[in-house]
């Protein structure tokens, strides 16, 4: 386990260099911001591994290459396994002071990539795994993933006479990763960029596997104005449907503990994917939120 660096990362000392530039991400893309900020923290000695998904689709279209550091597209299930190979290869070749960093979406992490991620954590691979969570398969046209929240309309969780969007709860990836005894895990949101930066910096110093699950709204898939990405990402935290936390040395901690929540209804109904929800659906979501927070307070702070 690395020591937490005392120098606090801030806007003032964050690198001016851009490592993800000229990409074809949609206007207002939260995922590309998460990736851009992460590489500023990890720097030029990074090997970025990006599976099939939004960020690979927008970043490497021959001859337009948007990464300015080393980067490679992995297979869809293969983010963590390719990261393991990159790290092992670099180690075996005697390369020092590098970061092997993965950027996978929610489907690439919680669905098809979970097996490889689990194995890499089990081996305590010295890798950093960032899950940019835009809550559906966006690149293929907004289909439901295991991280799509209950009630969200996607192309494969439609709204009709029988169903009102996704019927499953968002898979608790952060807790699943933590249950492996991972060296470091955190949740973050691009609505709280300084909290995210601090977690990135910590992850860069961990001698083992780090996992950061960053909440990255998608204006196209969620149905809100492109200018609202940061606001939506912040509101998700402020209404209690997302939370900012860390796991290290076997302990969970909150890095942001709201004393009261803003309106869940306002957060949800501001996005077209939730606009079909009826009062009972909204109350159900609030009930689940309250249950989660009571669990957090009971289990993390006992």
């Amino acid at each position: 386990m690395g020591n937490r660096q005392e120098k606090k990362i801030s806007i003032r000392n964050l690198s001016d260099r851009e490592f993800f530039y000229g990409h074809k991400g949609c206007p207002g893309c939260g995922g590309s911001l998460a990736l851009r900020l992460a590489l500023k923290v990890f720097g030029e000695r990074s090997y970025a591994v990006v599976p099939a998904g939004c960020m690979s689709a927008v970043g490497f279209i021959f001859p337009q290459m948007a990464f300015t550091c080393n980067a490679i597209i992995s297979t869809f299930p293969g983010t963590a396994s390719m990261l393991s190979g990159v790290a092992a290869g670099a180690r075996a070749l005697g390369i020092k002071d590098f970061h092997a960093v993965g950027f996978a979406g929610d489907g690439g992490t919680a669905d098809i990539g979970l097996q490889a991620l689990s194995g890499a954590i089990d081996r305590h691979e010295k890798i950093i795994y960032i899950c940019y969570d835009n809550e559906a398969y966006m690149n293929t046209g907004v289909q439901k993933s295991a991280l799509t929240p209950a009630g969200a309309r996607t192309a494969t969780s439609p709204v009709g006479n029988r169903l009102r969007g996704a019927v499953t709860q968002k898979k608790p990836m952060f807790e699943i990763v933590a249950a492996h005894g991972v060296d470091y895990a955190a949740t973050a949101s691009v609505g709280y960029p300084l909290d995210y930066l601090r977690k990135l910096e910590y992850a860069s110093q961990v001698d083992g596997t780090s996992y950061i699950h960053v909440f990255t709204p998608c204006p196209i898939g969620w149905g809100y104005e492109t200018s609202d990405t940061i606001a939506v990402a912040k509101n998700a935290v402020d209404c209690g449907l997302w939370y900012l936390a860390e796991f290290s040395n076997g302990r969970f901690t909150l890095t942001h503990n709201p004393s009261e929540f803003i309106s869940v209804q306002d957060y949800l109904l501001g996005q077209s994917r939730f606009r079909h929800l009826q009062e009972e659906d909204l109350q159900g979501i609030i009930t689940m939120r309250d249950l989660k927070w009571s669990n957090i307070h009971r289990e993390w702070f006992s």
């Binding site: 190979g85 790290a87 092992a88 290869g89 075996a92 070749l93 194995g119 081996r123």
Partner: peptide, 25 residues
């Protein structure tokens, strides 16, 4: 470096990753 990976898919994926930094696999 010997990696006890979790599947054959991961085995070859890891070899590709290592090859992609110039390692023999």
């Amino acid at each position: 470096e010997y990696l006890n990976v979790e599947s054959e898919h991961s085995a070859l994926s890891a070899c590709i990753g290592a090859s992609a930094v110039g390692a023999r696999t």
